[in-house]
Amino acid sequence: MAGRAATPSARAPSGRQSRPGGASAPLRRLAGGRASGFALIAALLALWQVSAEHWVRSENWPPLTAIARAFLDGMRSGELAEVFGSSLYRLAIGYGIGAAAAILVGLLMATVRIVHRALEPLVELLRPIPVPAIVPPLILLLGLDDKLKIFIVAFSTFFPVLVNTVQGVRAIDPVPLAVARTFRHSRLRTLLRVALPASLPYVMAGLRISLALALIVTVVAEMIAGSAGIGYHIVTMQYAMRAADMYAAIFVLAAIGYLLNRAFLLAERRLLHWYRTDKTE
């Protein structure tokens, strides 16, 4: 496969949990080494509030207090919950379908030669398409409803997981596979009980990239072909000149992005506690 997979050791694209910064680094961080960083954030927020109240009188630049009020109103009326619920629902289904399909196809491609040779050019052809570009043709084929968004999320989830699964199975230590053969395990059993767990660090790295991508794509699809959901809500609030509601939704979206990533890291640590991230270094 021409594109390189994200290796679990250098979980390059979007993570920073392995920080070889010396043994005392975590302690110092707990002790408030990053106080200056939090002070910077507080200063920026204060600047926002003061500038919006006194210097920049603009509909586009509401003070934080107005945004907080919009957030509370949105929570109380249930509007925000509905908007985010519908997006997360589609995200979960699309992500699940895309990931399951990718792991299945990835295992097949990595173990059955002819499948790899038949599918690889097609994958290489589809993978580099920038996702927003496939929204217009899909609108024609699938309409504007859930089907469209679920498909797009599944489509964009598929490729990072696939590439990483193939790479992960290829990187497996041949000894366990030989042992499984010695014990006369069937091919299927070897695949599910040996190959899949052994390649899990790679698969998980792909799944994590895909999760961030899936959230982006959900928002994008709702912006271009919107009828509901976060992306549509944010664009609608911008058109309606309800800037405070728009910012409130963006803040909630940021929180959701953060929480999804955190939750994934937790799950990953539980699943992969046996895997040392510094293995290849």
Binding site: I41, L215, I216, M237, A243, I250, L253, A254
Partner: peptide, 21 residues
């Protein structure tokens, strides 16, 4: 220390959401 918390805050936000503002 100065920039990391800010970046950690902005990074998980899907960037297309910043288009409307």
């Amino acid at each position: 220390n100065l920039f990391e918390p800010l970046f950690e805050l902005i990074r998980p936000l899907p960037k297309p959401a910043l288009l409307p503002p």
